[in-house]
Design a protein around this nucleic acid. Structure first.
Lengths: 241, 241
DNA sequence: CAGATAACACCTCTTTCGGGGGAGGAAACA
DNA sequence: TGTTTCCTCCCCCGAAAGAGGTGTTATCTG
């Protein structure tokens, strides 16, 4: 009746994450830096104006070039496979295929693919999942031009690049308690306004069991009511209402 | 103890809204079209890449020019007063001063200011408030280039420009029931996970009164639980959690 | 392998929610 | 002037929610 959804353990995941973050800001050189004169960049964002802005910014740089533009995650993966860009700029929430899934698919083809997530969402869970999936950088769309360009250079050079305030959120997430997959199931149904009984019926467990899960969720998220839990989870990017 | 927060009545507001929307898509000519050869555009968005994209798109057009860029609502109002642009492109959620407030301030100086809201939020309440404040257009950031340019031209010519799918949402909002200001107060506190008793203590009213408001909110929003109400309200842009 | 940890399931008990009403006062609209 | 809407408060009552504690089973950890 029960299925193990998370194949890797928490400690395994966090150890991997530490390894990924260890290179941040240290200036550690790439193990195999591309020899091309220009850094080729793939852009993936469903917002026309954002794509336009990135193209404009990159075209202005003599040491960079735009390799292609994707309007969703599926397209991003296809274009990546075709052109193998040096660096990929990727939004998180896109139609067809979301950013995290796109990162995972790309990294199935190349473990060392250099991907920067450029998005508006700053929830700790969003950041965590992106880095966990293999993103080398995480930037918000209000990032200044220079910082964006610097990040592209750094990621291209093999570094990991996450601004301090986002890294702090990430640290919070890592140090804080993790919701189990079952608890997330319950949380999602809670967010739909379902009662404990309805949740139980959906998940084929008793109402009492649902209550114990809800209790665990409250304790881990440090909230008192289900409404607060849903609001919190939405803000953190744990669920998208 | 009680203050009247909404000075204008519902019927007044909706009548005004109907007047504003009546010109949409009819091609009605402006009453006083500017005589300059180029349409001067003011850009206001806190996202660097979006501003960059808009500048890039507009610079490409021979009949348009960028008059200035603002990174928040306060700056947008200042720049508008300085340069009096033909058309203003404005994001909704910005630091310092939000988009709706900026629109209101600008229209205090010029009743006929031509403002287009360009944002990612498509909640009916967001759209309603923007149009209500006096926006002549409402576009999402995934709008194609041509549609954006067309909208700038149309708004400059004095038309109102709201895409059909957004206009439909707006119609839903207008036809649906309106929450009173007090009900919104309660809803906001509900979203923070507060109990009826706590809400009562915060608003200096009895718990019974809170329950009455909560009941009214459920009925108007057509939901059963407070969690559902908060999720719904957030999605619609009624509250920002 | 023993011991700890965590997820999952289930049980009672008290408090709070939420549905069903009703009612009076203030302000705005006709 | 009457009508409508909003805000305030009240009642009852069944159904949830939320706070306790128990036990079983995997999976790390030493």
């Amino acid at each position: 009746m029960r299925t193990k959804k998370e194949a890797v353990s928490k400690s395994d995941r966090d150890a991997a994450l530490s390894r990924k973050l260890s290179g941040a800001g240290t200036g550690r050189a790439s193990q195999r830096a591309p020899k091309k004169s220009r850094i080729s960049v793939l852009i993936a964002d469903d917002h026309t104006v954002v794509r336009e802005g990135l193209v404009s910014l990159i075209r202005r740089k003599p040491d960079m070039s735009v390799l292609g533009e994707a309007t969703n995650g599926r397209e991003a993966v296809e274009l990546w496979k075709q052109h193998r860009p040096d660096v990929t700029l990727l939004d998180l929430r896109m139609p067809e295929l979301d950013g995290v899934s796109a990162i995972k698919e790309i990294r199935e083809h190349d473990e060392h693919a250099r991907i920067i997530v450029l998005t508006t969402f700053d929830g700790d869970e969003d950041i965590y999942r992106a880095i966990q999936a293999g993103a080398k950088g995480y930037l918000l769309k209000d990032v200044p031009r220079e910082a964006l360009m610097d990040s592209i250079h750094r990621v291209h050079a093999g570094e990991t690049c996450v601004p301090v305030h986002l890294a702090a959120k990430l640290a919070e997430r890592v140090s804080g308690e993790t919701l189990s997959s079952r608890e997330i199931d319950v949380l999602k149904l809670m967010a739909q306004g379902k009662s404990n009984k309805e949740i139980g019926a959906t998940l084929f467990i008793s109402e009492g069991t649902v209550k114990s899960h809800v209790k665990a969720i409250f304790a881990k998220m440090n909230v008192i009511s289900r409404t607060e839990a849903v609001a919190n989870a939405t803000r953190r990017g744990l669920i998208q209402l």
